[in-house]
């Protein structure tokens, strides 16, 4: 009963949502790769970036506020690492994770306190939100820009990790934390760099996400954060291409499930069921490396 345009529309919105999940998922997967820490505050950094934009764009033009938002988001991410994770570097892994949950709640409640709990309108970035007519389809520019930008950013990131010195240091640290420290790698600057990259991508994702949906509220980071986390685990946590592919698969599947009236209510359940299944059948995810514990 549906025409081809309908399915293309579904596919497009799935790819867009998937690429947003991908940008967030990279932050999860990189931090996990290096610190073996699931940074639960990542979704809230994404939310805070949204609020930075709301407040900054009230006084500045977009040309100033977009870079400023990205810088502030990066600063926030690094600050969180310095304040909440670094002092716990020698503590058991569980303590750091609980600290991350604490930061997540702190950010959510801080945002609720400052905004009074009301959703704020996101500034209209007309360059992104303009609607184009292609055939029988109405497509927002953002729908096309998001996946392309994501792929470009991921390509740059892969080059950074494979070809540069800091990238080599990152790979070394993710292999063996202590040995790389012994080899003279400045572990703190590598970790800071990880948070810089993760937060930067979360900042980019937040601009694309909120420009598309038009408003920011204090709790909005939780769901995309969780979905991105599932994507990271699905693709094999620690693996960047894995996170991206996992995110695309989840985005597209969700889109088709939500379009079917009969099973639409299960769209979130599907994502989390997928998490359980992948953990049961392939605990290391699609592209995860199998680590052999050395005695």
């Amino acid at each position: 009963m549906h025409d081809a345009a309908y399915f293309i529309q579904l596919l497009l919105s799935g790819v867009t949502v998937g690429s947003l999940y991908a940008l967030i998922a990279i932050g999860y997967t990189m931090v996990y790769g290096i610190l073996r820490l699931i940074n639960f505050a990542h979704g809230d950094i994404f939310m805070m970036a949204g609020f930075f934009m709301v407040y900054i764009s009230a006084t500045c033009s977009l040309a100033i506020s977009i870079p400023l938002v990205l810088i502030l988001t990066v600063v926030l991410g690094v600050l969180i690492e310095k304040a909440a994770y670094k002092p716990l570097r020698t503590a058991p892994r569980m303590s750091v994770m609980i600290s991350a949950i604490g930061v997540s709640y702190l950010l959510q409640n801080l945002a609720t306190y400052i905004t009074g709990g009301i959703a704020r309108a996101y500034p209209d970035i007309t360059f992104l939100t303009k609607v184009m007519q292609v055939g029988g389809l109405s497509i927002k520019r953002i729908t096309i820009i998001t996946p392309i930008l994501t792929i470009v950013l991921v390509a740059i990131l892969v080059v950074l990790i494979q070809k540069t010195k800091i990238g080599m240091a990152m790979r070394a640290v993710s292999r063996d934390f202590e040995t790389s420290q012994l080899m003279g790698i400045k572990i703190n600057s590598v970790i800071s760099m990880t948070f810089v990259i993760g937060s930067f991508l979360a900042g980019v994702a937040s601009i694309l996400y909120f420009a598309n949906y038009g408003q920011v509220s204090p709790m909005i980071g939780a769901m995309p954060g969780l979905k991105a986390f599932v994507a990271a685990v699905f693709g094999g946590i620690g693996s960047i291409p894995g996170a991206v592919i996992g995110a695309f698969i989840i985005g597209i599947c969700e889109s088709f499930i939500k379009a079917n009236e009969n099973i639409a209510v299960f769209s979130n359940a599907f994502t989390f069921a997928l998490l359980i299944i992948i953990l049961l059948c392939k605990p290391n995810g699609l592209f995860g490396e199998k680590l052999t514990e050395k005695v």
Binding site: Q9, Y209, Y213, I220, A259
Partner: peptide, 21 residues
Amino acid sequence: VLEFQKGETDFSTIMASVKSA
């Protein structure tokens, strides 16, 4: 009836259904 879940922000799939039907 077209249902969505609490906290949903992306209605593009629902809108695709509305348009198609």
